Measured scan of single mutants.
Amino acid sequence: MWEAGIQHIELEKGSKGLGFSILDYQDPIDPASTVIIIRSLVPGGIAEKDGRLLPGDRLMFVNDVNLENSSLEEAVEALKGAPSGTVRIGVAKPLP
């Protein structure tokens, strides 16, 4: 389960991407759907250096692409398709 509020994070995407990987996970509230979760951070990558994204965070959007009900493929496309420079990411943090 995740917090209702969405944290807005801006990262600078370079030639090596944003520095994290994702996975799809069965939604605990709606078993028929999936949620997109941050799986891991690349050591020394943009996301790890920034410090705000953590494994277990739920990915909600990338720039103007809503990922609340997306497939893993759609989420990967949104991340890979984001141009270099500032990328806006929304995440919901896990409940304590």
Rank of each mutant, 00 (worst) to 15 (best):
V91P: 00
Q26D: 12
G45R: 02
R58Y: 01
V62E: 00
I36N: 14
P55A: 15
D64S: 13
L59H: 00
E73S: 11
D64N: 14
F20M: 04
V65H: 09
G5R: 08
E77V: 11
V62Q: 00
L18P: 03
G90M: 02
K93D: 02
P83F: 03
E73R: 05
S40C: 15
G19H: 00
L53I: 15
L18M: 10
G19V: 00
L11H: 00
K13G: 14
P96C: 07
P83A: 10
F20C: 02
L18H: 03
T34H: 07
P94V: 05
P43C: 07
D30M: 10
A82K: 04
S33F: 07
I46F: 09
L18W: 05
G19E: 05
V87H: 02
D57S: 15
H8W: 05
S15A: 05
A78L: 10
A82W: 03
S15D: 06
P83G: 09
E68K: 10
G51Y: 00
L72V: 11
F20K: 00
V35G: 07
V65C: 12
N63F: 01
E68S: 14
W2D: 11
G14N: 10
L59R: 01
L67P: 01
E77M: 07
A75T: 05
A92D: 03
F20D: 00
L72M: 13
V62C: 04
L67N: 00
K80T: 11
S40P: 01
E48C: 05
Q7P: 02
A92S: 09
V62N: 01
D24Q: 08
E74M: 15
Q26H: 12
S33I: 06
V35Q: 14
L54Y: 13
I38T: 03
G44Q: 09
A75R: 01
I46W: 04
T34R: 14
S40V: 03
V65Y: 08
E74K: 03
A32V: 14
K16S: 06
I46H: 12
L67W: 02
W2C: 05
P28T: 14
L23G: 10
V91C: 11
V87L: 09
V91H: 08
E68T: 09
E12W: 07
P96G: 15
D30K: 11
G51M: 04
V65G: 03
A32F: 11
N69G: 13
Q7E: 15
V91D: 01
I29H: 14
T86S: 12
F61L: 12
V35L: 09
A47V: 04
A78E: 06
L67Y: 04
H8C: 12
Q26M: 05
E48T: 04
M60N: 03
I9A: 03
G14T: 13
L54F: 12
L72S: 15
E77P: 03
G56Y: 06
L72Y: 11
D24G: 04
A82Q: 06
G19C: 02
L18G: 00
D27Y: 05
L79I: 10
M60C: 05
I6E: 03
A32G: 10
E10V: 07
N63S: 03
H8I: 12
L95N: 08
R58Q: 04
A78S: 10
L11F: 13
N66L: 06
L67M: 14
G45A: 08
V91E: 00
T34N: 12
I22W: 02
K93L: 03
V42D: 13
V35P: 14
K16L: 08
M1S: 05
S21Y: 07
S40Q: 14
L54G: 15
L11T: 02
K49C: 06
L41V: 08
G45P: 00
I22K: 01
M60L: 12
D64K: 13
N69V: 09
A47S: 05
L54K: 15
K13C: 08
L67V: 09
L59W: 01
I36E: 01
R58S: 02
V62F: 04
H8R: 15
G85W: 01
L11K: 01
K16Q: 05
S33N: 11
R58V: 02
P43K: 13
P96M: 04
I22T: 03
K13L: 12
L53H: 00
I22N: 01
N63K: 01
P55H: 04
K13M: 13
P96E: 15
P55F: 02
D50A: 05
E48D: 06
Q7N: 14
D24A: 05
E12L: 10
L23I: 14
K93N: 04
I29E: 15
F61M: 14
S33K: 10
G51Q: 07
S84Q: 07
S15P: 11
E3N: 05
I37H: 09
P31R: 08
A78P: 00
A78M: 09
D24W: 03
P28L: 10
K16V: 08
R58E: 02
N69P: 02
L54T: 12
L18V: 09
G17M: 03
G44Y: 06
F20A: 02
L23F: 10
S84F: 11
P28D: 14
G5N: 14
G51E: 04
A32M: 09
V62L: 11
N69I: 09
N69Y: 07
A82C: 08
I37G: 05
P83W: 04
E73F: 09
E68L: 08
M1P: 02
A82E: 11
A92W: 04
P94L: 06
F20R: 01
K49D: 05
I89G: 01
L41I: 10
L95H: 06
P43R: 06
I29D: 15
H8N: 12
S70A: 08
M1W: 03
V87C: 05
R88N: 09
F61A: 11
V65A: 12
F20T: 00
Y25W: 15
A32W: 06
P31G: 11
I9P: 00
A75N: 01
V42K: 10
I37Q: 15
V62S: 01
V76G: 14
I9K: 01
V91T: 13
S70G: 13
I9T: 04
L53V: 15
D57H: 10
I89H: 00
E12M: 10
I9D: 00
S21V: 06
L72T: 11
N63D: 08
I22D: 00
D57C: 05
M60Q: 04
G44C: 10
V65R: 11
E3I: 11
G56K: 12
L53E: 00
S71R: 05
I22E: 03
G51V: 01
S15V: 09
T86R: 15
Q7M: 08
L53W: 01
I29K: 11
L72K: 09
E68W: 05
I22G: 00
I6A: 05
E3F: 13
E48N: 04
S70D: 03
V35K: 13
E12Q: 09
D30A: 09
S70C: 13
R58M: 02
L79F: 07
A47E: 02
T86V: 13
I6D: 03
P31D: 10
A82V: 10
V87R: 01
V35R: 15
P28Y: 05
G5P: 07
A4R: 07
K49V: 11
I9L: 09
V65N: 10
L72A: 15
R88W: 06
Q7R: 07
P31T: 09
G14E: 09
R58G: 02
S71D: 14
E3L: 04
G44H: 14
I22R: 00
D30T: 12
P28Q: 11
L79D: 00
G90N: 02
E3Q: 06
A4T: 13
D50L: 02
E48W: 05
A82P: 04
F20I: 08
A32E: 08
L59K: 01
E3D: 08
G17N: 08
I38K: 00
P96F: 03
P96L: 04
K49G: 10
I38V: 14
V76P: 00
P55I: 14
M1A: 04
D64F: 03
P28R: 11
A78V: 12
V65Q: 14
Q7Y: 10
D57M: 15
I36P: 14
H8K: 12
S84R: 08
G5H: 07
T86M: 09
V76W: 13
P94F: 02
